[in-house]
Design a protein around this nucleic acid. Structure first.
Lengths: 346, 346
DNA sequence: CCTCTCTACTATATCGATTTCGCTGATGTT
DNA sequence: AACATCAGCGAAATCGATATAGTAGAGAGG
């Protein structure tokens, strides 16, 4: 073996010397250019392997202006960033697929070295071939600048013009949940909605739409606001709902995690799920399926979201000239669970 | 404004032309070299800003052999990778601190472009200044190669020779838990231990040590194996413990998440926590504190773990010659909660 | 007055790969 | 036989920043 230990010393020049071809030829052969004869290519590849050759990404980047590197913009407001199960699952599958496609991923921030720079500048500095944007304040001018730049960009769960978006179908999911609950005999369905993100807005819209379609009128006090992903807040909303003179028979939560707050409140009042009150969540996180009773919820396909994001981003990079921005809706799946009681009303 | 829209065109050469200094001078001035006069430096900095100059990381890397980039080796065996709350929290705070210190982070994998390479080669290819290794199979020869290489490396929750390790004090944590449970009057304490990772081994050791110190003999059938982080598995173990002729009064779980399985099983048997049976977890994840009753657990300081890892890695990079590998134990905190009943025994 | 030492700056080689253009000899065409 | 075509390869410029070795001029010291 000729592999080097320590700093990598073998360059294309060394290969060139060793096998008698010019550096141009070596470079082309290593990149499998058809310009070079098959035999020559084989010899060069063989030599490169024997010598433990490793390309120098910096040199390559410098010359080609590409990096095989994808940026991930993913901000950790209120500490939820990577700790947010839904997003970390999406990012994880994005990572796996990106790696499969031969790309590394780098997180984009404001600081690098001892200087501050905009997200866009950071991406240019690192020569990111493309960027995925998730879980950020989509109104941040810095984010807008990046999205509108010439760098291929994909957003998750948010729509910008001229930018491909990968979207979890929240409208559809909420409708499916409502329909299932309705079909189980419930007519008094309350909805706790999270803070005003584009995602939770769509869920709320889905709820109203489904109710209209079912000819179900929902009293105003069956709709309660709460903070997204905050059990405490949804616990309070639950209490209010339960204390209504005509309380609902089923409560829908903004997300599975919020449901924990409701669960605590319901148990505290001595009620049991689903005998006394039915509940449903949203997201289908792992937790929701290990709780008893199993939560009725809508599973977002985080794998597909991440994978599609990576695939489309790479497509956008490769076919930069012809690629047309699109919106990709990822279907989810209703998880029936045991938290919605079958009523024999009507 | 002279800032460029589109591809970054402003180079050091352009600045040189515009303000009449050589590129050498410009480069030095931008790097705040003392070799250059104050006035000149000011002029150059000003011009650079006006022209919207952005350094080219590839060119810089190529010449200096540094990248301001940290590698993160973090494998997603059994899909738990970033979805594992403990590790994702650690990585998140690592990311935040690394960014504060001016470093980007890039995930290290086996694939890049259309070639496969070892972790070590990948780091060299990307010119990572340092690497943090977490949540991997520490026996993997590929991991060992990386850790033993000349690249500054830090491990989390695992000790290698000549490599700084950041460690959550699992021994201490488990002891604290046992002591608290004992102080609450419990003498029949069962322990469910997770699969054989170095972390869970230490927890088990801590359990035995604490019991010995308290002169408490633990029957063999009070120690049950289960899969780490798997509620189903710990649910089974719980059932076995509850069906013993002389069942324990308190059950300790390998981690908070596993506890969910126990919780379900306990409730299924019509028992309630902590009246009929006391329980304790480990990790102090957010979930554990929103469940009712609040779980008695030991909170691992994930913030400190990630932050210390980043700080020490950067130290190791900067003082490469003089840096000495060390082991840093991060203290956690006992969260008493309400899941351990106070007994007035003895 | 002459040398010497700094300060402040410049010219140039260099990092390692890619890429354009050009060359050579072999083959095909008429 | 004369010419065009083309496969296969090489020379050299280039990407943008940094680092080394030097130069010009100002001031110091004897």
């Amino acid at each position: 073996m000729f592999a080097q230990i320590g700093a990598n010393l073998v360059t294309i020049k060394d290969i060139s010397k060793r096998c008698g071809y010019s550096t141009s030829t070596v470079s082309k052969a290593l990149n499998r250019s058809l310009e070079i004869g098959q035999k020559t290519t084989a010899i060069i590849q063989q030599t490169a392997m024997e010598m433990g050759y490793l390309p120098n990404s910096a040199a390559r980047s410098l010359k080609t202006n590409r990096s095989n590197n994808l940026g991930v913009l993913f901000i950790d407001e209120m500490q939820s960033g990577l700790a947010h199960e839904y997003f970390s699952a999406v990012i994880n599958s994005f990572k796996v697929e990106a790696e499969r496609l031969g790309y590394d991923i780098t997180f984009i921030s404001h600081n690098i070295g001892n200087m501050q720079m905009s997200y866009y500048d950071h991406c240019k500095y690192r020569k990111c071939d493309g960027v995925v944007v998730a879980c950020v304040d989509f109104n941040d001018p810095d984010v807008v600048e990046l999205v509108q730049s010439e760098i291929p960009t994909i957003t998750i769960d948010h729509i910008f013009n001229d930018c491909t978006a990968i979207l979890s179908d929240n409208l559809r999911g909420t409708k499916d949940l409502v329909n299932h609950i309705y079909a189980s005999g419930h007519r008094k369905i309350a909805y706790i909605h999270g803070e005003n993100t584009s995602v939770t807005k769509r869920r709320l819209a889905g709820f109203h739409k489904a109710c209209r379609a079912l000819n179900l009128t929902v009293p105003n006090d069956y709709i309660k606001p709460a903070r997204y992903h905050d059990p405490q807040s949804s616990g309070l909303a639950t209490r209010e709902l339960l204390s209504l003179s005509d309380p609902p028979t089923c409560i829908m939560y903004p997300d599975d995690f919020s449901y924990i707050g409701g669960m605590n409140e319901i148990e505290k009042q001595g009620l049991s799920i689903p005998e006394d009150i039915s509940v449903a969540g949203y997201d289908g996180i792992y937790l929701s399926q290990v709780l008893r009773p199993k939560l009725c919820t809508f599973r977002q396909d985080t794998d597909a979201l991440g994978t599609e994001a990576a695939k489309n981003l790479v497509d956008a990079i490769v076919d930069q000239k012809t690629y047309i921005a699109k919106q990709i809706w990822i279907e989810g799946q209703l998880l029936v669970g045991n938290s919605v009681k079958k009523l024999d009303s009507e």
